[in-house]
Amino acid sequence: MTIRINLCFSSNYSSLKTLSIDGHFTFDDVHHAAKDFGNRFQLLPFAVLHPRSVSDIATTIKHIWQMGPHSQLTVAARGHGHSLQGQAQAHRGVVINMGSLQGPKMHVHSGNYSYVDVSGGELWINILHESLKYGLAPKSWTDYLHLTVGGTLSNAGISGQAFRYGPQISNVYQLEVVTGKGEVVNCSENQNGDLFHSVLGGLGQFGIITRARISLEPAPDMVKWIKVLYSDFTTFTRDQELLIYAESTFDYIEGFVIINRTGLLNNWRWDNRTSAVIPEEDIFYLVAFLSSAVPSSTGTDGLEHILNQNRRILEFCGTARLGFKQYLPHYTTQEEWQAHFGPQWEVFVQRKSAYDPLAILAPGQRIFQKAIPFS
């Protein structure tokens, strides 16, 4: 068994090393690609690709695709590594350093149809700084801006603006995507629409976002921030829902419930053509328990204690039959993923079969295993 594995690695090394690309691979200094923000999983990749062009990414994926189902190589795109459960890692695979991707510079188009063209590895904070030079800004944000475009669009991208404009995936005009077959495809609602909606919120399962055209709007010169404290939760939710339905209110609404920990509540409207799933309700809330711990901490402040609390919350919601869906979902079995997607699971599988039939992409999500046929 050991000899077989070593021979396989040797074959992988030789085949990747001889690829004609503008960027380069590293095979030794790969430890940084085996970590992420969650700091719970450390899965060493076989190699890290530092692409200079989209062609580098396409060439690499196409090569792995042509190697067929017997190759162990998989591919994960890594932006700032802000995942929590190893989603941007590829054990014994290839991690793509999206920050190395070069190409056309960020371009802001002003006018009635305002947008910005950006690389999939670009940070939202940089988009803000550049678009503000033209008096513009993206319509929808995340609460933390040092994240990549490809990363947030692969999930949803939400904040207190989402109730009015939708999440970030609802404010994209066009994408450039490299599929699991190594094909570079431009897509939008009217061009390759199924791939477009598959990739948005698709957890990296159908393609790597290498470029995006993001909708912009005029940025205000000044804003007013109003903070209101409530002692009654029912009154709080009633007023919040009144504000999101009124035509002329605020552009950003969010709430915090302060007990022993801090929770964030938010609500928004959604485009159900994307791969992201939501509760089957007209209005729903995002409830986020914002806790942190270092892995070595113990007791009630320890990481395992916090994770156990999270599991108990999910178990309670299931037992009480409360309608809920995990945002930034993490499951370990395909049965759990199937329950998460519910009626959309069949469409999700069909899309996987169409755009990444060998399950090369985003193995860290643990949804599909490479080379297992889909049915």
Rank of each mutant, 00 (worst) to 15 (best):
A246M: 00
G201P: 12
A371N: 01
H330C: 15
T60G: 01
P357Y: 11
A246W: 01
H24E: 05
Q72D: 02
K139C: 12
L73M: 01
G364D: 14
G157P: 10
G318F: 06
R40D: 04
P363H: 05
F236P: 02
I306Q: 02
R261P: 10
S10R: 10
L314G: 04
V54G: 03
I372A: 03
R40P: 09
P104Y: 04
L203W: 13
N267T: 15
Q72K: 09
N266P: 04
I306R: 09
H32E: 09
Q334W: 12
I64D: 03
H107E: 05
N126V: 13
D239V: 13
N266F: 14
S231P: 01
S11H: 11
Y331T: 04
K17W: 10
S292L: 10
Q205T: 02
G93N: 11
F27D: 06
V75P: 00
S53A: 11
M1T: 10
R321S: 12
T148H: 05
I214M: 05
I5F: 10
T74R: 07
G202T: 11
S14A: 14
S154Q: 04
T142H: 07
Y245W: 11
S159H: 08
F25M: 00
S292I: 02
G23C: 01
Y115N: 02
T59A: 01
Q350N: 00
F324V: 12
N12E: 13
Q85T: 13
P104N: 01
E247G: 13
V149S: 08
A212D: 14
L16F: 02
K35M: 15
A339S: 09
C187L: 06
L264I: 12
V118A: 15
N272P: 02
G302V: 15
F316H: 12
E315I: 02
A276L: 04
Q344C: 08
G364N: 14
F37V: 01
L286H: 08
L49F: 02
D239P: 09
H31T: 14
R273I: 03
A371V: 01
I244W: 04
E280K: 15
T2D: 14
N186V: 03
E315N: 12
V277F: 10
H129W: 06
K325D: 01
V277M: 10
W268P: 08
R213A: 07
R351W: 13
A47L: 00
Q102V: 00
I253M: 08
L216Y: 09
F368T: 07
A58I: 03
M98S: 09
A76M: 07
R213L: 05
G255A: 02
L322I: 09
A362T: 04
D28L: 15
D56F: 01
I214P: 06
R311A: 14
G103M: 07
G93P: 06
V184H: 03
G201D: 13
Q369T: 06
R4H: 02
D232E: 15
T148K: 06
H50R: 11
Y245H: 12
H32P: 03
T298A: 14
G86F: 07
D29Y: 07
S215P: 07
P104L: 08
S10K: 07
T74P: 00
I253F: 05
D301R: 15
K325T: 10
R92G: 07
L195N: 03
F324P: 12
R4V: 11
G103K: 00
A246G: 09
R52V: 00
M106W: 01
G135D: 06
I306V: 09
